[in-house]
Each structure stands twice: as structure tokens, then as C-alpha cells.
């Protein structure tokens, strides 16, 4: 049990579950593939592409000495909470649909 009485297994599932990693890979994987070879830049990469490009644009203005590629690091880190949130939303939606049916 965690301090709030929530089972650790639930915490682990919310933060590290398969849905979380699948979502994370979906956000990051297509963009990494596209960056390795632009011919692999598919529309699947678009969310990551927009996030990284705009994020690096803001970052390069805040930290003018940094080159844009540096912002891959916050992108990789930032994609994780987004993946947790999306995976959580997916679980809630799936739960409701299951209950409804």
C-alpha cells in the first residue's frame, strides 16, 4: 500500500503500465524514426514533430546559447507525463465503455 492507501500495483500501473509505454512510444517513436531518415517521417510523427519544433523554438529564445537539438532531452522527458495522462484517459474511457456495455 502507498501512503494514501492506494495499492502499489495500481500506482505502478498508472505510472509504468503497458498503456503508458505504448503511448510514450507512439509519441516518440515515429519522430525518432523520421529524424533518423526523413523518408520515415509519417503523419504519426506529427504530434511529436509539432511539440519538439515549437518547444525548441521557445527554448532557443529562452536559452539563446543552446542549439535546437538540445531540446530533444526535455521532449523525451515531457512526453512521459503526456503519455501517463493519455494512458489514464484511455483507461477511464475504456472503463466507462465497458461499464456502459
Amino acid at each position: 500500500m502507498s501512503a494514501d492507501g492506494v495499492p502499489w500495483s495500481d500506482v505502478r500501473r498508472v505510472l509504468l503500465g503497458r498503456t503508458v509505454w505504448a503511448t510514450y512510444l507512439l509519441l516518440v517513436g515515429p519522430l525518432v524514426a523520421g529524424a533518423v531518415d526523413a523518408r520515415l517521417m509519417t503523419p504519426l510523427a506529427l504530434p511529436g514533430y509539432v511539440a519538439l519544433t515549437l518547444g525548441s523554438a521557445v527554448g532557443s529564445r529562452l536559452f539563446t546559447t543552446l542549439e535546437p537539438w538540445v531540446f530533444w532531452a526535455p521532449f523525451f522527458a515531457g512526453a512521459y507525463p503526456v503519455a501517463v495522462a493519455l494512458a489514464g484517459a484511455y483507461r477511464v474511457l475504456r472503463g466507462r465503455l465497458t461499464t456502459g456495455s
Binding site: A57, T64, P68
Partner: peptide, 11 residues
Amino acid sequence: SVGIYRLHEDS
């Protein structure tokens, strides 16, 4: 260039 014109600083 390392960045994109008008998007990244000094690029």
C-alpha cells in the same frame, strides 16, 4: 544551419 530561420534564435 543548426535551426530554422525565424523559428530558432540566430538560425
